[in-house]
Computed example of a mutant assay.
Amino acid sequence: MIKISDLKTRDVVNILDGRKLGNIIDIDLDLENGRVTALILPGRSRGLGIFTRREELVIPWEKIIRIGRDVVLVEVPTVTEIEGRRRSYLLDEDDF
């Protein structure tokens, strides 16, 4: 069993391009069913200065390939495609 606090310390790596996406900042839970539905990572900051909003990268649980000792491997489209969009992005099957 893995604790949520342990997951937050692991690097998340995209297996499609080998890039490190960052560390998990939050986890989306389905409380009714007691399941993790997505991992939330920090995206790029939009704008300049200290008052800019940082978009989030939401990775559905189904896109997680393997959770290892030091790393979480995911399979998502390239980060530049995702971060190029204006709103927070939730990956789903229609985007592939």
Results as ranks from 00 to 15, higher is better:
94 D>C: 10
68 G>T: 07
27 I>K: 04
9 T>D: 03
51 F>I: 06
65 I>Y: 11
63 K>V: 12
5 S>N: 11
75 E>R: 13
56 E>N: 13
62 E>N: 12
70 D>F: 09
30 D>R: 01
63 K>S: 15
12 V>D: 03
33 N>H: 07
62 E>G: 04
73 L>Q: 06
89 Y>Q: 12
35 R>A: 14
46 R>Y: 11
70 D>H: 11
3 K>T: 13
32 E>L: 04
38 A>F: 03
19 R>D: 10
17 D>Q: 01
33 N>V: 05
94 D>W: 13
35 R>E: 13
6 D>K: 10
27 I>P: 00
34 G>Q: 02
58 V>M: 14
69 R>C: 04
55 E>I: 14
84 G>E: 02
36 V>K: 11
14 N>D: 06
58 V>I: 15
17 D>L: 04
7 L>K: 13
39 L>P: 00
30 D>Y: 00
76 V>L: 00
78 T>F: 14
90 L>A: 10
2 I>D: 13
40 I>E: 13
31 L>F: 10
67 I>Y: 03
60 P>I: 00
70 D>V: 07
10 R>V: 03
65 I>C: 05
47 G>A: 01
39 L>Y: 03
52 T>I: 08
89 Y>C: 06
58 V>D: 08
82 I>N: 02
4 I>Y: 07
65 I>Q: 14
47 G>T: 02
14 N>G: 07
69 R>K: 15
78 T>D: 13
43 G>N: 02
51 F>Q: 06
3 K>E: 13
22 G>Q: 08
56 E>D: 11
74 V>P: 02
44 R>M: 09
59 I>L: 06
70 D>G: 05
79 V>R: 03
56 E>K: 15
59 I>Q: 00
30 D>F: 02
8 K>I: 05
25 I>V: 14
29 L>Y: 15
31 L>T: 08
11 D>A: 11
90 L>P: 01
85 R>F: 11
7 L>E: 05
53 R>S: 08
25 I>D: 12
19 R>F: 08
75 E>H: 04
13 V>P: 09
77 P>H: 00
32 E>R: 11
47 G>N: 01
63 K>P: 06
38 A>W: 03
77 P>D: 08
8 K>M: 12
86 R>P: 12
50 I>E: 04
19 R>Y: 10
62 E>K: 11
81 E>T: 14
79 V>S: 02
25 I>R: 14
85 R>K: 12
67 I>H: 04
41 L>D: 00
50 I>S: 07
60 P>C: 01
52 T>G: 10
17 D>P: 02
68 G>N: 09
36 V>W: 04
93 E>H: 04
75 E>Q: 12
47 G>K: 07
17 D>A: 02
81 E>Y: 15
64 I>V: 15
56 E>S: 12
7 L>D: 03
